[in-house]
Amino acid sequence: MKHSEFWQVLEATFGAGHGRSVAEDLVLAALGGRTAARALADGVAPRAVWDAVCDEMELDDATRWRHRREPRKDRSA
């Protein structure tokens, strides 16, 4: 997962404004008590950050793997 994919899937999942809020405000224990934004800035792999967000928010597998779906399938979801 690239950084751009992380931000795209975060916004697709939570909405543009709320997604950014989740990244800036949600403290993730799995990432040492950092937010997603801080973890990314510290060099944590975007995939690890996304997994931590999914775990913390108890998101389903379809959402966890949203970034791997074909774009045309996302449009119909």
Rank of each mutant, 00 (worst) to 15 (best):
S21F: 15
S21V: 15
S21E: 13
S21D: 13
S21T: 15
V22D: 05
V22S: 06
V22W: 05
A23M: 04
A23K: 01
E24C: 13
E24Q: 14
D25Q: 14
D25N: 15
D25R: 14
D25L: 14
D25C: 14
D25E: 14
L26I: 12
L26E: 09
L26M: 10
V27W: 12
L28R: 03
L28A: 09
L28H: 09
A29S: 08
A29T: 10
A29C: 02
A29W: 02
A29R: 05
A30H: 01
A30R: 05
A30G: 14
A30S: 11
A30F: 01
A30K: 04
L31N: 05
L31F: 07
L31M: 08
L31C: 10
G32E: 02
G32R: 01
G32T: 06
G32N: 02
G32P: 07
G32M: 03
G33Q: 09
G33W: 13
G33D: 10
G33I: 12
G33S: 11
G33C: 12
R34G: 04
R34Y: 08
R34K: 08
T35P: 03
T35E: 02
T35N: 01
T35D: 03
A36N: 01
A36F: 05
A36G: 12
A36Y: 02
A37Q: 08
A37E: 10
A37D: 09
A37K: 04
A37W: 07
A37V: 04
R38S: 14
R38T: 15
A39H: 03
A39W: 04
A39T: 08
L40I: 09
L40A: 07
L40F: 07
L40H: 03
L40T: 04
A41D: 13
A41Y: 06
A41I: 06
D42F: 11
D42C: 14
D42N: 10
G43E: 08
V44K: 04
V44G: 11
V44C: 13
V44P: 09
V44A: 15
V44D: 10
V44Y: 06
V44L: 10
A45E: 12
A45Q: 06
A45C: 02
A45H: 07
A45Y: 00
A45N: 04
P46Q: 08
P46F: 05
P46A: 10
P46M: 07
P46V: 07
P46G: 12
P46S: 11
R47Y: 00
R47A: 15
R47N: 06
A48M: 04
A48L: 10
A48C: 02
A48W: 00
A48K: 00
A48G: 00
V49R: 00
V49T: 02
V49G: 03
V49W: 00
W50C: 05
W50H: 01
W50E: 05
W50I: 06
D51G: 03
D51A: 14
A52E: 06
A52R: 01
A52M: 08
V53I: 15
V53F: 06
V53E: 02
V53S: 05
C54H: 00
C54N: 00
C54I: 06
D55W: 07
D55L: 14
E56P: 11
E56A: 15
E56K: 13
M57R: 13
M57A: 15
M57Y: 09
M57K: 14
M57T: 14
E58P: 00
E58M: 03
L59S: 07
L59M: 10
L59D: 04
L59K: 01
D60L: 08
D61K: 00
D61C: 08
A62Q: 04
A62S: 09
